[in-house]
Write a protein that binds this DNA or RNA. Structure first.
Lengths: 347, 347
DNA sequence: TATTTAGCTTGACATTTGTGACCCAATGGA
DNA sequence: TCCATTGGGTCACAAATGTCAAGCTAAATA
């Protein structure tokens, strides 16, 4: 394969000037170039299979059709890449490509990442965190269309796209309420994560609105074993020591791994899921939640959608030509994924 | 923030010509530019914080310092992105960035992906599959430095980087052999995957070299539940129906999810891991393998290393200026990850 | 003093594209 | 006949860079 054909090659081949080729390729031919010559040029272009050199085009137009993405860690969690996949495909459809730099959570690298992207003349910037957290946006993000994805600016100067965790927590509770449960337990995870706080807020709101007494969250870790231990305390018969402790018929878990731990305890104790205990997970940790028996009903984190939304927003900016945008928070809903781990409580 | 500074701006600011600036920035100043002017130019560059516009540079040099990656699916498996992470960081260190396009396993998109990347003048190409498989390389990959990662060309015209699955299967067996096990079971997964075949080949070789009788693989699926079911058959006491069936003291599993299923059965049957049964997984499915109790000893797939290796190879090509490379297969070893699920067998 | 030479500096070109300004021929109207 | 208009097409510029060849100044040599 020789050198790529240039517009000059096409012009020579068709016996016209390079400008004529350019006009045809950019849809400005009507009224400038005769119909027959248009066809001639088009034929020549096809024969040499000419496609404009997008580097030269970028230089001239001052637009690279490229969006820079700086991320925490591509391979971090189990849903790693879902956000990127959403962003990538939304961008590609609009003729844009992504330049992704992974800082591996080392803040020192962030500065280098942004200046590298700026040198490359990206049209817009995204900062994406792999788990929801506050993040002060880099200086480079002002003066170029930018959004934060799955993270938010404490100062509120930049738009941020985050999951609607409050609604998510509410939805998780509502799944059980709708099925008719009243004895509900809540394993909340631990730490001061903002996601956890908001989920708990939503959960409490739903319980209270349903007219049930407040439910105290039981703090657990985030792993299978943490769910296992917590469920042991929660479900095992204590021999009648504590007075009239009611065993819950449904439980909302901090994430799907914890939910799996609960499932395992049920197996051990001879409790059937969902007949004896309904379980709701969180995150839609796919290979896990889909392959348990029964499948885990869970509230999904909308990673893919956040990625798509981020790009949509930026493309809007680019079309309208705005340089700097006001801040604001876009909440993306957390859809409920119904599988088989929830049922009507036994009488 | 105004327009980015150009080399002309720096030249004006320092009172010299643009060429002088260019010389200084590219280390060709000695013997061409007086020392004091060099300092002057450097100062001006720093003050305007000038960095060369890499689009213009790319156009001029016919090199974009960009490598195109076409992939099956970024968010496919649980290790999705590890390969990309390795590639990305290796590239970044050398001043290259990655342009990644995800075809979502739809072959129709592949053509568009490659031509898009070619238009963008990428210096090199990678095709990466998320699970090991044969893949006929796209025409675009000839004529530009290219490699296949985690996939191989049936015609053998292109270099491919794949895990050394034979050695991996051998290593899995060897872990148990080294610990002194002789009663070993093998849950092999199912389907005609090339990875499985090679692992089995390696497993059998190790067993035979150890002087043990051949072990028949038990086909299972790939999920937690498949491991659960298989282990039930394998471990449950059948009440003495089959004559003198020896219970294995160690088991090699097709992947970590299957291994988890086996662990669960042990819990149910009251068998302790690793005292009563040693378990070896495969894949190093991280959040899972690390958080079981005990941690799962497993053979890791070298996704990260394959990504790094792919980039190293391509950077070598680019440095040497070769346009087309001969085919060949690079095997990347699968390292053993020792955790707690293997012990010396009980007497 | 004339001429070479070394050191330093700059002008000009090439990379490829899109586009505003321009040119030419022909036609229509005055 | 002359001017203006218009359709059809081209020239030249701008985008920012790297580099080669040429130019210039001052010192050094014959």
């Amino acid at each position: 394969m020789a050198r790529k054909a240039t517009s000059q090659d096409v012009a020579d081949h068709a016996g016209v000037s390079r400008s004529a080729v350019s006009f045809v390729m950019n849809g400005r031919a009507d009224g400038n170039i005769a119909k027959d010559k248009q066809l001639l040029i088009l034929a020549a272009a096809k024969e040499l299979n000419y496609t404009p050199n997008s580097v030269a085009r970028s230089l001239q137009a001052q637009r690279t059709h490229t969006i820079g993405v700086v991320t925490d860690s591509i391979a971090g969690g189990p849903f790693a890449g879902k956000l990127l996949q959403g962003a990538s495909s939304a961008a590609f459809q609009a003729g844009y490509l992504l330049l992704v730099i992974d800082t591996a959570s080392e803040d020192i690298r962030e500065d280098g990442a942004f200046t590298t992207l700026l040198n490359r003349q990206v049209d817009a910037l995204v900062f994406a965190a792999m788990s929801l957290r506050a993040h002060r946006p880099h200086a480079a993000m002002h003066g170029t269309p930018s959004v934060l994805a799955n993270s938010f600016d404490p100062a509120g100067t930049l738009r941020s796209i985050i999951p609607d965790e409050v609604a998510g927590g509410r939805a998780a509770a509502q799944i059980l309420l709708d099925a008719g449960h009243t004895a509900i337990a809540y394993l909340s995870g631990t730490g001061e994560l903002v996601a956890t706080e908001r989920r708990t807020e939503g959960f409490n709101a739903a319980i209270s609105e349903a007219g049930l007494p407040a439910i105290k969250a039981r703090e657990t870790g985030w792993e299978i074993n943490d769910g296992f231990v917590a469920a042991m305390h929660l479900l095992a018969d204590d021999g009648g020591h504590s007075p009239k402790r009611e065993r819950p018929t449904g439980v909302v878990c901090a994430n799907d791994r914890v939910a799996l731990g609960v499932m395992l305890v049920c197996g051990q104790l001879g409790l059937r899921v969902p007949e004896d205990l309904s379980i709701v997970g969180y995150d839609d940790d796919e290979p896990l939640a889909r392959t348990t028996v029964p499948g885990l009903t869970t509230v999904a984190l909308p990673h893919r959608e956040m990625g798509e939304k981020a790009i949509e927003l930026l493309l809007g900016d680019l079309r309208s030509g705005d340089r700097d945008q006001a801040g604001g928070t876009i909440l993306v809903p957390c859809p409920v994924v119904m599988r088989g781990s929830v049922a009507v409580p036994a009488q």
